[in-house]
């Protein structure tokens, strides 16, 4: 007996916890490493990106207000769900031409757990109690920056995605991320992981698109508070985006060197003073 005809997945955007097509109705085809057609992927527009920013901004206060323990558990659950879909991600990484697919998925799972544990420790390592010279109680605490735009690096596809997203969300930021055009399906599948991980709607919004085009609209968007440009390989474009980001003094991450430094890029230190006395 012949195997039944496969039911193909429609590859859509991930905005505010839902999977819409692009408002424009446009898409682009994706092929595997051998050139065989796999799917038509939604091609997000400026309008989609702006909708995603609205969703991210609306979700941010509540996500930041969740307890660090709660955020840690939700990020940990992302790893749980990814573990269950390991075979799917290995196959998709293989399709995208990645040789060490299993190693990358294993690393990705470990990395998510590493971030999950940071949620209730950042305040200890970057915050402080300050011995000021006077009768005051004075302490400094980290708070999330707000809405972070992320241009995901092409390589390594899954690990970059996870590092860049987790470094922002673990502390209470929300994200609009642009998938690389060379491996968009990894992001589409990862959005499905996020959708089943108890992550509140709007905390991560993932767009498949021509990221060179859409990144400009995020860099110049006044409700975006920070931008991770580590996935932009064209140096001229990167300069232009950094220039645009200055319009509202966005925090800019030029290169993703390590997770701890990146997490701190999306934190603001708040210092509170109060007099002490009877």
């Amino acid at each position: 007996m012949n195997s039944p005809i496969e039911v193909n997945r429609t590859a859509k955007l991930f905005i505010n916890g839902a999977f819409p097509r692009s408002e424009s109705g446009r898409s682009f085809p994706v092929a595997d490493a051998n050139g065989k057609f796999i799917a038509n992927v939604a091609n997000a527009t400026r309008k989609d990106a702006r909708d995603a920013v609205v969703a991210a901004a609306a979700a941010q206060p509540k996500w930041a207000g969740a307890s660090a323990y709660n955020r840690g558990q939700i990020v940990y659950r992302i790893a749980e769900i990814l573990q269950g879909r390991k075979a799917q991600f290995m196959a998709e990484l293989n399709d995208a031409g990645v040789k060490s697919a299993e190693k990358q998925v294993d690393q990705a799972i470990n990395q998510i757990i590493w971030y999950a544990g940071w949620s209730d420790k950042l305040a200890m390592t970057v915050g402080s109690s300050n011995p000021v010279a006077g009768p005051f109680f004075n302490f400094s605490n980290p708070e999330p920056t707000g809405v972070i735009a992320i241009v995901i690096s092409e390589k390594p596809p899954l690990l970059s995605l996870i590092n860049q997203l987790c470094a922002a969300i673990v502390s209470g930021n929300t994200v609009v991320a642009l998938a690389p055009q060379s491996a968009p399906l990894i992001s589409v599948s990862f959005a499905e992981v996020l959708a089943t991980s108890d992550l509140p709607a709007g905390v991560v919004n993932l767009l498949t698109c021509d990221s060179d085009e859409i990144a400009f609209w995020l860099a110049s968007h006044l409700e975006v508070d920070g931008i991770d440009l580590s996935g932009v390989s064209d140096s001229e474009l990167k300069t232009k985006l950094e220039f645009e980001a200055a319009i509202n003094l966005k925090r800019v991450l030029r290169d993703f060197d390590d997770g701890y430094t990146a997490m701190q890029s999306w934190l603001e230190i708040k210092t509170v003073w109060h007099p002490q006395g009877l």
Binding site: N130, P131, A133, N138, W273, H274
Partner: peptide, 12 residues
């Protein structure tokens, strides 16, 4: 809080 314009080298 209940003070203003205080500064100190140890305070970010």
């Amino acid at each position: 809080a209940n003070t203003f314009n205080k500064f100190d080298p140890t305070s970010p």
